[in-house]
């Protein structure tokens, strides 16, 4: 690995100062499960790495406030899947987070890191899109909210400006009855990135929200009805790569959509 300066700020102000001083050659370090791989491969060669895990107020908590569940940027996949409030309201997110990497990866990997890394195959992105997640961002200039549906710009690219930090992710607690589920296909059953992943939710009126990943440059959110799954999945723009061909991905999206809808309808009836 190339040498870099390491900072472990204890306050937000120090984080912003470090991000400014070393821009644009600076990287935020959360769980490191994506960043460390890229530092080692030389794909990222920052001058400075800012470890945000010990910033005071950095939250590993999941708290319910005013109709939203706020997931702190320090929350790991392991924390997320064992939280009763997440299990109760957001089953598809639990399903997605529990297949990220291995136990060792999930013990470090944060939900915020999964979206900030902006892989088209990020497993938590489809359920977060379906649930209408909003990203809470802070910088020297203040705070702002970005709907997750506007957050991804391309592979590895997000709407975050230089000097901005994700502090939490808000999940609106569903007010109307809905069922939701997550599906993914991989080359092997264990630790593997998704060849394609998909999440959907359905309400009593038969309205469907669906999002899929590894099927377009960014995880894509589409809407329709239980009768229009084909049109919905046709909005994908998959490519062929080591994990699968474009035609295979396109065909499997419809299969996954049907499976996810069936599970969602079952959950809606419960």
């Amino acid at each position: 690995m190339q040498p870099f300066a390491y900072f472990r700020p204890e306050s937000r102000g120090e984080v912003f100062a470090a991000l400014r001083e070393f821009a644009p050659d600076v990287r935020i370090l959360a769980g490191g499960t994506d960043l460390m791989v890229r530092l080692r491969s030389g794909r990222f060669r920052p001058n400075a790495v800012v470890d945000v895990k010990r910033v005071s107020g950095w939250s590993s908590q999941i708290v319910e406030t005013e109709g939203v569940l706020r997931v702190g940027a320090g929350v790991t996949m392991t924390d997320l899947v064992s939280a009763p409030s997440v299990q109760q309201h957001f089953p598809a997110l639990v399903e997605a987070a529990s297949v990220v990497g291995s136990v060792q990866i999930r013990n470090r990997a944060t939900l915020a890191g999964n979206i900030c890394n902006a892989s088209p195959a990020a497993d938590t992105a489809p359920p977060l899109l379906v649930y209408g997640a909003v990203v809470n961002v802070a910088s020297r200039a203040g705070e702002r909210q970005i709907p997750l549906s506007e957050f991804f710009l391309g592979p590895g690219r997000t709407a975050l400006a230089a000097g901005e930090l994700v502090e939490s992710i808000d999940l609106p607690i569903p007010v109307e009855a809905a069922g939701s589920a997550f599906q993914r296909i991989t080359r092997r059953r264990g630790v593997d990135l998704a060849t394609a992943n998909l999440s959907c939710s359905v309400n009593r009126a038969g309205e469907v929200r669906m999002a899929f990943g590894a099927a377009a440059p960014i995880p894509l959110l589409v809407t329709g009805t239980a009768a229009s799954l084909e049109e919905m999945t046709a909005q994908a723009r998959p490519i062929s790569d080591v994990r699968g061909g474009a035609a295979y991905r396109q065909a499997m999206l419809l299969v996954m959509a049907r499976r996810a809808l069936e599970v969602s309808l079952g959950r809606l009836r419960q």
Partner: peptide, 28 residues
């Protein structure tokens, strides 16, 4: 050295992690 094999697993504050994906300085 990229989180795939688990040969480097240790317990960090009681949790299993891949020590190849953790900077030494993070464990202060």
């Amino acid at each position: 050295a990229e989180g795939e094999c688990g040969a480097c697993t240790v317990l960090l504050d009681g949790k299993a992690v891949n020590s190849c994906l953790v900077l030494a300085v993070e464990t202060e």
